[in-house]
């Protein structure tokens, strides 16, 4: 049986099925990215997908675009170089919560500060899955990991607030369960001129799920369904109903001078003066 048209068009389907565990929702988020690209009618040859290291970063290996699988935490740094060399390219970064906010935390904040026109999709499963379930900067307080056997005492990052504070000009959060909304946020993030970031909440039943007794992939998806609320609804909820809820939606959008365009202005100005 042949795969769907979307998969045939945008995936290296000879490499499928992918490496991710049963119930891991990284596959859902990866498909959501290609669906957004398909709906936007983007040119595959003009699109570059860059990733770092981790479960999330395996995604470009399956995607039929110009893809670069780089070093841990440095996906945004490589993507910055690619975008600076050819600003006409559409550059999308696929990264994980640890890759983006721990090992690559500096690259994340400085790319956001510069407002360089990259689209960063964070596959956020609250754990380092590939290396065996160590807690990451987005692991919730009191949750368990192999390196937090008595519960995590750290406060988790809100990656979107971090990016917004650093200067990102589009931030949104979607979940693997709320897939249609996720696709629309990815689409808006790609169209946005400037640094855009989508926090894509994914589930890891193998490491996060087992350690925290969250159940199977299905049960973790049901948890996303029951506990994530659209930010527009959340804002109208009375205080007592907000307790324990998480929010998805679009959080911040602003226009600000974009880095490669500003750089080009310097080139043009100096060439004019010579």
């Amino acid at each position: 049986m042949e795969p769907s048209k979307l998969i045939q068009e945008y995936f290296r389907d000879a490499n499928l099925p992918h490496i991710w565990c049963p119930g891991c929702s990284h596959g859902i988020v990866t498909r959501a990215i290609t669906k957004a690209i398909d709906e936007l009618g983007m040119d595959k040859d003009n699109t570059v997908i860059v990733s770092g290291i981790g479960c999330s970063s395996r995604a470009p290996g399956y995607m039929a675009f110009n893809t670069v699988h780089t070093t841990h935490g440095r996906a945004i740094a490589f993507a910055t170089g690619i975008k600076m060399s050819k600003p006409e390219l559409d550059v999308i970064v696929i990264t994980g919560d640890g890759d983006a906010s721990a090992i690559g935390g500096n690259h994340l904040i400085h790319a956001a500060r510069r407002n360089i026109d990259l689209t960063v999709i964070v596959f956020n499963n609250n754990i380092y899955g590939m290396t065996g379930g160590q807690y990451s900067p987005t692991t919730p307080t009191d949750a368990f990991g192999t390196t937090a056997p008595y519960g995590n005492i750290d406060q988790p990052f809100d990656i979107l607030k971090l990016a917004e504070g650093a200067g990102a000009t589009y931030t949104a959060r979607g979940t693997a369960y709320h897939t249609k909304q996720l696709i629309s946020y990815i689409s808006k993030a790609i169209k946005h001129k400037g640094f855009s970031i989508v926090d894509a909440i994914s589930v890891c039943p193998t490491y996060y799920g087992r350690r925290n007794k969250s159940g199977s992939g299905v049960q973790m998806m049901v948890w996303l369904k029951d506990n994530y609320v659209d930010v527009k609804v959340y804002d109208k909820l009375p205080e007592e109903k907000r307790a324990g809820k998480f929010v998805y939606g679009e959080f911040y959008e602003q226009e600000r001078p974009e880095y490669t365009a500003e750089y080009q202005k310097i080139i043009d100005r100096l060439r004019g003066e010579v």
């Binding site: 769907s4 998969i7 099925p17 119930g23 693997a176 369960y177 992939g217």
Partner: peptide, 14 residues
């Protein structure tokens, strides 16, 4: 089902 299948194993064919 197609939207949420992580393994691209089920879909609607036009």
């Amino acid at each position: 089902c197609e939207l949420r299948c992580p393994d691209y194993a089920i879909y609607l064919k036009e």
